[in-house]
Design a protein around this nucleic acid. Structure first.
Length: 286
DNA sequence: CCGTTAACCTGAGAGC
DNA sequence: TGCTCTCAGGTTAACG
């Protein structure tokens, strides 16, 4: 699920649902997420009001009084579910993925007055982490590069960070310390739009190609946000909002399908680069 | 430094 | 129905 656009959609929904609301209590059903959830999480954030909902890269950040924060990362399979409390009427309060709460893997439940926010994560690669002040949060993010939509992400920035580097562009786009927020789906899509071969070394890219990378990174990410993100796996028997950007994939999940460039007769091929599936058109991406 | 592999996990889907 | 195998939107350590 969660690259930058999907996390941004969650963030926007959270703003509508939990901003300025007070947390009553937190129930931790399973502490064993990617990192062990603090024993005192309930103590830390109970009775605190959410003053801001932020997003940095693929992280959601809830901001409390006195610069205290709760960080949420979804890993590969984490989702948040807004669920009415039992005594309330059924409404369409859910904002992501499902209006039906999954049965299993509901690891953390955050209670508000009329509803609860449930963190579900079958694979448990995601995590929640509490920060007592801004310094520790900033330190935690100190290895992250510029946000893909940051205006400072321009030709000069890219030239600077690839200087004396030898690295293929696919791995470069996935490396969060250069550009933050791009994941495997969007890296594939960005390279197709830019007409660049994923194996191409960044030290072989000319300025025009670097400019294309910047332009299409921003464009693809913005388009995906507009479409509500991408939903690859649709869960059976679960209705609810899912993203629509998967309908616009040019290469991702399109192995052996025809290249969508009308003048091209090639089929999209799939290879593995550093263990991540990479889809591209040999003819269009040089 | 660079690319690859494995590791952390569960579950869906394919093939048999 | 079920078994085995591969793969999945992320991140990070270890290895060669």
């Amino acid at each position: 699920m969660p690259e930058l656009p999907e996390v941004e959609i969650v963030k926007q929904s959270l703003e509508k649902s939990i901003l300025y609301k007070k947390i009553n209590k937190v129930l931790v059903n399973n502490r064993n997420l990617r990192f062990k959830v603090e024993k005192n999480l309930n103590k830390f954030i109970s009775n605190k009001k959410i003053l801001k909902v932020l997003r940095r890269s693929k992280y959601i950040i809830l901001n409390f009084h006195k610069n205290q924060f709760l960080l949420i990362h979804f890993g590969m399979s984490g989702t948040l579910h807004l669920v009415r409390n039992n005594n309330s009427k059924k409404t369409n309060l859910s904002f992501y993925h499902s209006i039906n709460l999954p049965q299993k893997h509901n690891h953390i439940v955050i209670f508000f007055n009329n509803f609860k926010l449930v963190y579900n994560d079958p694979r448990r690669f995601g995590y929640l982490k509490f920060f007592k002040n801004l310094d520790t949060l900033n330190y935690y993010f100190s290895n992250l590069g510029l946000e893909v939509l940051d205006k400072r992400l321009n030709l000069n920035y890219l030239k600077k960070v690839i200087k004396n580097k030898s690295k293929n562009i696919k791995n470069f786009l996935l490396d969060q310390k250069y550009i933050a927020g791009i994941g495997n789906i969007y890296a594939n899509e960005i390279l197709y739009y830019s007409k660049i071969n994923p194996y191409k070394n960044v030290n072989k890219l000319n300025y025009l190609e670097l400019k294309k990378i910047i332009y299409f990174s921003k464009l693809v990410i913005k388009k995906a946000i507009k479409k509500g993100g991408s939903s690859i796996k649709d869960f059976k028997n679960i209705k609810g909002k899912s993203g629509l950007f998967q309908n616009e994939f040019k290469v991702y999940n399109r192995e052996n399908k025809k290249c969508l460039n009308k003048t091209c007769l090639e089929k999209i091929i799939k290879v593995f680069i550093s263990n991540r599936s990479s889809y591209f058109c040999k003819n269009c991406q040089k």
